[in-house]
Write a protein that binds this DNA or RNA. Structure first.
Lengths: 340, 340
DNA sequence: CTGAAAGCGCTTACAG
DNA sequence: CTGAAAGCGCTTACAG
């Protein structure tokens, strides 16, 4: 069954393709009668314009590209959901690609999306990405680009983020306020900005409260997995018996740490208090429930798409847009892994 | 900066567009010299063919559509990852849509993808979908369609599934073998086939082992959430003190049940043994670790795409394909929530 | 109010 | 070996 074309509609109605086209799109200079006839026939034939032809003519695909480090991840999948939801609402479709934290893949995927002629690109950087030329080119080609969560500060494009430093400060301060004197930090890899910012927030919070910063209390997680949480909790337990609080870069690692510490007979929060980051829903399910920073993934996705849409529209009207940095609110969720 | 066109390449080289096109695609009837010149210029100008024009000509978009009930879900996001991974490997991009378990949305999204002219569609049904006309139409329009996980048995298209009934039988039999005499079942909603099949597997397993089937021991979860696990565990505890085993439709609910039972002072697995379903990675992280059925999400995604690709290729060559049902292996993962 | 024409950028069957 | 031509299915500026 071949799809109906405008040509066929025009032919059976004995009118021209141009008129049929205009009738369907409600151009004011077409008679009511013709409009009615065309629309009725289109409806009964179940006509839909060939999107390939429309794309070619309008140079728009109503499709955007999304590059994300890892799909199987509670925070990121929430962001994806927010993006897809908002995009569909506005008539856009989303092509999702996973960079797998690899710079090379990310670069290839940017090229793929550019070749595909998507109307705009949303990206959260791979941990390994330290060179931004591939993204600079996107900007130079005047293709709307919005970064979220894992961003590159130097790039002149819009960004949707949380204030990682401030949130980490709040988290760490909560440990201090709970009476912790010696606070460790399980941080993320060295490159990504948010892992740096969370570390800086941690450092500032303890120094502001007259606790000596001790680099040996900072453990670097490479893949931020449950296993790493267990591993570094074990290591910390062996190396630093005096630690009484840990601020962990992300909930999954924190849950790993809790699991291991429980196994070692450490009481949480009495012996060691723990604060995580992201408010993964599992955090309220484990024992003890995890105090953490709520990071609004779904909202971040929606916001990032909204910003991208604005820039795509501006571009269509040949207007310039200035990059904007949108900061989303986070909040401390107090639970049982810190003392009340 | 406007993209380069073939026309421009042809002009600067003083040849025709046709020859330039053929040179780039290595047609045998173009001189080596011309090929070299065109390819070199294309490379230096960073030429890529306009995908809209190519789509229109070839009637292919190298894009597929994916409709999934819920993106923020460990099993489904693993499937998505498998699909995206395999598709990218073969030069295809994936447009993902979330049906949110809603029939109406799913129907709209099918229409969206058809209008978009994707080369094929991958779908896992919404729980609420009981009418399949929208999918029948896809099949009638001869658009390759492969269902996975949540399928409709009656539809004449390929399907990638696990044997839910068999897996549920294995899970329940494991409880029987562990000495359980009175086994409850937390099942999924009434409509989806896999929720039905898991229930049937449960029922058959107990009946095969001379345990009386008791409908009052079957609890129906509507949204299969952590909270429902807690709720029905509480209810079960109040209504049936004699239950000594539960087979739960999915890990998240099982973890909710464990959490609640622990709170009630029930010993797991001594008082009540529990088996989940899906082998969500959190299952090995909670205490006690959860015995469960491993459901290969990533592999299911890869397999579904491979099958779709085969059908898309066949269609391109005007060959027929017979629907094929591909059953993936599952396995019982024994952990601490059942006695050793 | 309607339609002929140009054109989006490519591919490919055909002629030379 | 090269190129003119047709055509994919639409949109829109222009003429009448």
């Amino acid at each position: 069954m071949k799809p109906i074309t405008l040509q066929e509609i025009a032919d059976t109605l004995g009118i021209s393709v141009s008129t049929a086209s205009k009738a369907l799109k409600d151009y004011p200079d077409v008679s009511q009668r013709t409009k009615r006839l065309v629309k009725e026939l289109a409806a009964t034939l179940n006509y839909t314009p060939n999107s390939f032809a429309v794309n070619l003519r309008t140079k728009e695909s109503m499709t955007i590209g999304l590059i994300i480090p890892e799909v199987v991840h509670h925070f990121f999948s929430s962001v994806i959901k927010g993006i897809i939801y908002q995009a569909e609402k506005k008539g856009y479709l989303v092509i999702t690609l996973q960079s797998n934290e690899s710079y090379e893949l990310e670069k290839k995927q940017i090229a793929l999306l550019m070749r595909k002629n998507v109307d705009g690109i949303l990206i959260s950087l791979a941990n390994q990405t330290a060179n931004f030329d591939h993204l600079k080119e996107v900007i130079e080609q005047d293709k709307p680009l919005v970064m979220f969560d894992k961003i590159a500060k130097v790039l002149p494009c819009s960004k949707v983020i949380i204030n990682d430093r401030k949130a980490a400060y709040t988290a760490t301060k909560h440990l201090v306020d709970s009476g912790c004197k010696r606070i460790a930090h399980f941080r993320g890899p060295l490159l990504p900005q948010n892992s740096i910012d969370r570390f800086l927030g941690y450092k500032k919070a303890i120094e502001d409260h007259d606790i000596q910063y001790d680099p040996s209390l900072v453990y670097i997680c490479e893949d931020m997995s449950f296993e790493e949480g267990k591993k570094y909790a074990q290591k910390l337990y062996e190396e630093h018996k005096d630690v009484d609080g840990i601020f962990v870069n992300t909930d999954l690692v924190a849950i790993g740490a809790i699991t291991q510490l429980k196994e070692l007979g450490v009481k949480i929060p009495e012996d060691i208090a723990i604060v995580g980051f992201s408010n993964w829903f599992m955090s309220s399910a484990i024992t003890p429930t995890l105090t953490t920073i709520d990071q609004p993934g779904f909202k971040m996705g929606k916001t990032a798409f909204k910003r991208l849409l604005k820039e795509m529209k501006k571009k269509k009207n040949d207007e310039k847009t200035d990059p904007k940095i949108i900061e989303l609110e986070t909040s401390l969720v107090k639970r049982d892994s810190t003392p009340t």
